[in-house]
Structures are given as structure tokens and as C-alpha cells.
């Protein structure tokens, strides 16, 4: 069971380092290896594409958690023409694990909320690895009511391992903060769209994912609990996490199949998401398409549909 993305990337990482050596050599010796370089590059790309097509469920989890993926603030920069961050829950503090504010998306004023992970360890310590405290949910709650007041649609970006498993989060009513957010979103009188961009972990993710439309990136995951937690609960053995990643059916295509996700946005295999204009364009286009469609509905109808959407989830026999 690989521990991180780099381990399963090892096959072509080795080739990439050899390619760099070859490039160095061609400069040093002043020889033209351009044919050889191009052919190795082609081969690496083939390998990469092939590798990404056949990821195991556990590898998908590792990829979804990758810190090189864009985080909520990156998406805001890539998709919005204006963004002003707003802070604080007006009760206790400001939670850096949830970013919130107002901005302009395709010429429309919207309220934006999302989990924020760090880019590296020091940054992650600031953002608590994207794990919100109750203040984060309460900040989101306050900003949602503000969105309702000004009749602004809401966009949420989901990327969190889950709620913070700490004593203070419990003391300040983590469960209460999450449930109140679920209740608030289920009745909010403005359109809501959620995009699952990386790791959708448990209640901490769900708290911002009660929406009229849910979009999901093709390498993102969304689950009732992390595979590690699930393995620990069911077997008291964290080493069986890879088995659980498969059993939990947590990838985008599985969730589209059971009707929890409306649309899967394909990610490019060969380049980082933030560097792919095709990917950014398709993400923007999808959000706009869904936003236009739900903004044209009247609110009582929209709320009825949001309720029915939740109400019908579940499989049982009668």
C-alpha cells in the first residue's frame, strides 16, 4: 500500500529524471538530442496517461489529497474576477480552515465558501490541514444568511479530511455547528452549488455540500469517513485502509452512479490542474451552466427540489 502520490508515480518519475540528465548532457556536449528527447517525452506521457487511467481506489485517495492540487483560494483566483474575503463567526473566532467571502463569477455576485488546506507543512499548520473548528461552520452559517439577505447564489468548494477531532472543537459544540449548517443549507432561499475539488471527508465536508447541484472533479473522493477511520472502526487496523477505499465506493464515477453527484469534471492527466486552460474553462463552464439553470427557477420550487433531492437518497426494501 503506497503512502503517497510519489510512490505510485515512481515508474515515470525515474524516466523523467533520466530525461533531465539527457537534456543536461545535450547542453554540455553541445549535441542535438532533440529526436531522442522528444521520443522519451512521448513515452513518459503515454505511461502517465496509462497510469492515471488505472488508478486503484487507494491511489485515487492519495491523489485527491495531493498538496499540489489547487486549493480553494487557487480556484477563487482562477474562476473569479473579484473576491473579497470576510472573516469571523461573530461568536468566538475566525477559522482559517474555511475561507469565505463575496466575489464576482461570470459577472454575477456570489458568496463563496470553501475548505482551505495548506500548500506545505507550515501553511497546513495555519489552516489546520483543512479541518474546521466549530468557528468555521459558524462563519459559513453567518455568511450563508448574509447571502440569503442579499439574494446572492452560493458556491462552495469542498476539500477537507473532515471535522477536527480535538477536545476544544467538541467543547464548543462541533456537532451542533455542523447540524445547524445542514439545516440552514437545506432551507436557504438562494441557489447553492458545491464543487468537490479534492478530499470530501465525512461530516466536515457534508456541512458545506447540501446543494442544488453537486459537481465533482474526476480525481476527487467523497466518503462517509476516511478509509483509515473506516478500517480503524471496523477492524481496529489502519493498515486495511486500501481495502476500505475500494469498499466505500468513494470516487466520482461511483457517486455519480448513485445520484449523489450531478456532474463529473474530467481532469487532465498530463499537467497540473492550475496550468490547464482546458480544465479551468470546462470547470467554469459547468458551474456557469448549472448556476444559470437554477437561478432561473423560482425559490419555492428550488427549495422543494432540494428537499426531494435529499429525501430520496437511500436504498432499502419495503
Amino acid at each position: 500500500m503506497p503512502k503517497n502520490k510519489f510512490e505510485f508515480e515512481a515508474t515515470y518519475k525515474l524516466l523523467e529524471s533520466k530525461l533531465d540528465e539527457l537534456k543536461d548532457l545535450s547542453v554540455k556536449l553541445d549535441c542535438d538530442f532533440s529526436n531522442e528527447i522528444a521520443s522519451v517525452e512521448r513515452r513518459i506521457n503515454q505511461l502517465k496517461e496509462e497510469r492515471y487511467k488505472h488508478l486503484t481506489p487507494w491511489e485515487q485517495v492519495l491523489l485527491a489529497r495531493d498538496l499540489e492540487r489547487p486549493m480553494t483560494r487557487d480556484y477563487i483566483k482562477l474562476l473569479f474576477t473579484e473576491f473579497i474575503e470576510l472573516h469571523g463567526d461573530r461568536l468566538y473566532g475566525d477559522d482559517p480552515a474555511i475561507v469565505g467571502g463575496v466575489g464576482l463569477f461570470c459577472g454575477r455576485a456570489v458568496t463563496v465558501l470553501g475548505h482551505q488546506k495548506g500548500k506545505d507543512t507550515p501553511d497546513n499548520i495555519i489552516h489546520n490541514f483543512g479541518m474546521p473548528h466549530p468557528e468555521g461552520y459558524r462563519k459559513a452559517h453567518r455568511l450563508l444568511l448574509e447571502a440569503e439577505k442579499f439574494n446572492r447564489p452560493v458556491l462552495t468548494f469542498i476539500n477537507t479530511p473532515g471535522a477536527y477531532p480535538g477536545t476544544q472543537a467538541e467543547e464548543r459544540g462541533q456537532a451542533w455547528a455542523i447540524s445547524q449548517l445542514l439545516l440552514c443549507l437545506s432551507k436557504l432561499k438562494v441557489p447553492v452549488i458545491s464543487v468537490i475539488t479534492g478530499e470530501g471527508g465525512s461530516g466536515g465536508a457534508l456541512a458545506l455540500t447540501v446543494a442544488d447541484r453537486i459537481l465533482m472533479l474526476s480525481n476527487a473522493v467523497y466518503s462517509v469517513a476516511s478509509p483509515e477511520t473506516c478500517a480503524s472502526i471496523l477492524f481496529r487496523d489502519i493498515k486495511r485502509a486500501d481495502e476500505m477505499a475500494a469498499a466505500l465506493k468513494m470516487n466520482a464515477s461511483a457517486l455519480k452512479e448513485i445520484g449523489i453527484v450531478d456532474e463529473v469534471i474530467e481532469e487532465p492527466a498530463l499537467e497540473p490542474l492550475q496550468d490547464s486552460p482546458v480544465f479551468i474553462k470546462s470547470l467554469k463552464h459547468s458551474i456557469k451552466k448549472h448556476l444559470d439553470s437554477i437561478c432561473s427557477q423560482n425559490i419555492p420550487e428550488l427549495l422543494e427540489q432540494r428537499y426531494l433531492r435529499l429525501r430520496q437518497i437511500g436504498k432499502f426494501h419495503e
Binding site: 455540500t209 447540501v210 466518503s223 429525501r311 437518497i313
Partner: peptide, 12 residues
């Protein structure tokens, strides 16, 4: 799995 998690939103 996710069907269970969604029961939280549904009951709320």
C-alpha cells in the same frame, strides 16, 4: 458509505 452520510442531511 455515502448513502449513510447523506442521511444526516436528509434528517436535518
Amino acid at each position: 458509505g455515502m448513502l449513510s452520510l447523506m442521511q444526516m442531511a436528509k434528517t436535518s
